[in-house]
Write a protein that binds this DNA or RNA. Structure first.
Length: 661
RNA sequence: GGACCCGUAGCUCAGCCAGGACAGAGCGCCGGCCUCCUAAGCCGGUGGUCGGGGGUUCAAAUCCCCCCGGGUCCGCCA
């Protein structure tokens, strides 16, 4: 028995029919079962049946006539004993009607044995690293990060539920210039970021964010004033003046939000310093070498920001398996090793007098003949990609160089088959360069199994978010407003409930509203985030699903446990019940496909439709007041299965599922 | 200038990868439904040159080409 699974995995009745049908058709047509499974659809009209197969499609490929195929498949279905009650041929489609009462009976049998909803497990599980969020530790998480986090965490949940072995990681970008700027600000203030923010009663990442924005904007203001003095023509002057006005306005707003009396200290210091840039440069260079006191200074800032991140993340149900420090990669010579390998490589060149990798040559030599690599690397046709510079003239490393080392580290640390980077679409070129560079250095497996899961930005209706100016809608305050809005509603509906319960449920609703809204739009399209509109908790929102789930829970609570012996399964055939049950039973297949396609939005769309189906049924077919015992218990079974399914789906999306709200 | 992504109802979005059975939801707007399992709900109505044009096909929102509009990227930034 060793090495083999202890028991055959038990599929729900619907998955069984769907899967077996796909296999059977695949056998008859010589197609791939997976492909056939995609083509099995739900007919647009109920009269046509429950499942349908586009026979013309298979006929075209195999040369067998549709009615011939129809005859063969029908025969095979009859022999197989699938829960199919009727088949028909209409307009080139083979339509199947399922034996729902029999499926319901099987389902009840499973539930009685303690079986619960789950996804069909993938045949060959992979070890997958999902890196997501990885926000710069210099300001609070804003809505852009929230989308990244929601996508990343949901992907991890989906893939895990499908049977893959998942490792989630957060990349701490502590080596770059931006962190050095924040550190410079704290150096001027001479305070410890974490303890100072505690003293202020402020979330540490918010404090860091304020100091960073103030420092950065002050420096920029000083620089611009200098440029303005040197500017030649009027056109140049007015352009600079306009830019300066913008920064001064941002500074005024930052001063207004001064959490203590820090503003003047930073601003005056920066103004009085001859060369702020050199100061920052010094911090950066010394940190890359791991020298004190810069090391403690930067770590202090970053630790404070991360502390704030963890608070926000745990609020929306996100935890990471590992936190990786970029600096560790530099200090541990992993980055140095990559640079050395590059120098020894046939793709090493000097570009603009710096050490670089000849990306065009890699494309020319390695992608022309290697069909698989071409496909997986996803190189756009006419894209000219410049060589990749590895090291600055001052000897410090560049982001992409460090990312090469990090990519290899992720594969190695988890012994991963695949690494998914959830990163914005604006980083496409960089991510492509990364894959090509790794390919050039001989890391073919890593290059081909590094997936850039890209998503478009979150925009606000009027303004453009800018961490540098301290202008963004941060996740914490969005959650706070959502919670306040939810509280009104919960209190209204539960006047006797105690405050603690109201607070808990409202928090769950806030989290659900936020995560759902960020996951339901497919990744490649931009999300326009209107804080006002998210406060609407009606249909097509997370709270709508939560509410529907809570309704089902309410019914089951009143009904009590199901009397399985009394169930009349034929009662499932009543049209609306049948629709609801069937749609509910489709869940495992839908969720599995969403996982395989890495398309969480498909699950979101399905759950909305499922909730609609439940709500319209709910309105007309009462459970508790049903006089006929057989029908009542049948309905209770449907409600209970729906409740279980919805809860499972919501959990995959990271939307909490309160039982009352 | 080049490349990539997006463009479906007034608004927010499914459907496109794997072409086929009347182009779907929600919001909004109009009209109904709480002595009855939570009205964050339900029922009905309103609303669409699927950005435009060509092509492939028996069949195109879906595939190919061109164009238009919006976004993004082309750093010794990250």
């Amino acid at each position: 028995m060793a090495g083999r699974s202890m028991s055959e995995y038990i599929y729900d009745p619907y998955t069984t029919v769907h899967t077996k049908l796909a296999e059977l058709v695949a056998e008859k047509t010589g197609e791939d079962p997976q492909f056939v499974s995609w083509l099995i659809t739900v007919p647009p009209r109920k009269e046509y049946g429950d499942l349908s197969l586009p026979l013309m499609r298979f006929a075209r490929k195999t040369g067998v006539k549709p009615d011939e195929l129809y005859r063969e498949i029908t025969e095979a279905i009859n022999k197989s004993g699938l829960d199919v009650s009727e088949v028909s041929l209409e307009g080139g489609y083979m339509n199947l009607k399922l034996d729902v009462p029999r499926m319901a009976e099987k389902l009840a049998g499973l539930i009685r044995k303690g079986w619960s909803v789950s996804l069909p497990r993938i045949d060959k599980p992979r070890r997958i690293v999902v890196e997501h969020t990885s926000a710069n530790p210099i300001h609070p998480l804003h809505m852009g990060h929230a989308r990244n986090t929601s996508i990343g965490d949901t992907l991890a949940r989906l893939l895990r539920a499908r049977g893959h072995i998942i490792n989630t990681r957060f990349y701490i970008d502590d080596v770059g210039k931006q962190v050095a700027i924040a550190a410079y600000g704290f150096k001027i203030l001479g305070v410890d970021p974490l303890s100072e923010s505690r003293k202020l009663g402020m979330k540490p990442d918010h404090f860091v964010g304020w100091v960073y924005a103030t420092t950065f904007s002050s420096i920029e203001a000083v620089d611009l004033k200098k440029q303005l003095n040197d500017a030649g023509n009027d056109e140049e002057r007015s352009r600079l003046q306009e830019k300066l006005d913008g920064i001064m306005a941002a500074l005024a707003s930052l001063k207004e939000r001064d959490p203590g009396s820090y503003f003047d200290k930073i601003f005056e210091h920066v103004t009085a310093t001859h060369d702020n840039e050199a100061e920052i440069q010094r911090i950066m260079v010394r940190y890359e070498k791991g020298e004190e006191p810069e090391k403690s200074l930067i770590r202090g800032v970053v630790d404070a920001a991360l502390e704030g991140f963890r608070e926000s993340l745990s609020r929306i149900g996100v935890v990471f398996d590992d936190w990786d420090w970029e600096s560790e990669l530099v200090w541990s010579s992993r980055v140095g090793k990559i640079i050395q390998e590059a120098k020894n490589s046939r793709y090493y060149i000097k570009y603009k007098e710096a050490d670089a990798i000849d990306i065009p040559k890699i494309i020319k030599e390695l992608l022309q003949t290697d069909e698989e690599a071409r496909k997986k690397i996803k190189l756009p046709r006419g894209w000219e990609i410049p060589p990749l510079i590895l090291v600055r003239s001052d000897g410090t490393t560049l982001y992409t160089t460090r990312d090469m080392a990090y990519t290899l580290y992720k594969f190695e640390a988890f012994n991963a088959d695949e690494v998914i980077n959830v990163i914005g679409a604006d980083q496409r070129l960089a991510q492509l360069q990364l894959r090509l560079a790794l390919l050039g250095l001989g890391y073919r497996k890593e290059a081909l199994n590094l997936i850039h899961y890209d998503y478009e930005m979150v925009r606000l209706p009027g303004i453009r978010m800018s961490g540098r100016r301290g202008r963004f809608v941060d996740m914490d305050s969005i959650l706070d407003s959502l919670k306040i809005r939810a509280e009104e509603e919960v209190r209204k509906r539960n006047p006797d409930a105690d405050a603690a319960w109201i607070g808990r449920v409202s928090e769950q609703i806030a989290v659900g509203a936020l995560r759902f809204t960020l996951i339901r739009t497919s990744a490649p399209r931009p999300v326009v985030f209107d804080p006002e509109k998210v406060l609407n908790l009606e249909e097509n929102t997370g709270p709508y699903l939560q509410y529907t789930h809570a309704r089902a829970c309410g019914i089951m609570k009143k009904h009590g446990s199901i009397d399985f012996e009394s169930i009349n399964y034929e009662a499932c055939n009543e049209s609306r019940r049948r629709n609801l049950l069937l749609m509910t039973m489709r869940y495992p297949m839908v969720a599995a496909k969403a996982a395989d396609d890495m398309a969480p939005e498909d699950l979101a769309t399905y759950l909305l439709k499922l909730a609609d189906e439940f709500n319209s049924w709910y309105q007309v077919d009462p459970v508790i007041r049903e006089p006929d015992v057989g029908a009542r218990e049948c309905k209770a079974l449907i409600v209970d299965y729906f409740r279980q399914t919805m809860k499972h789906g919501l959990e995959l999306l990271g939307v909490p599922a309160p039982e009352r709200m």
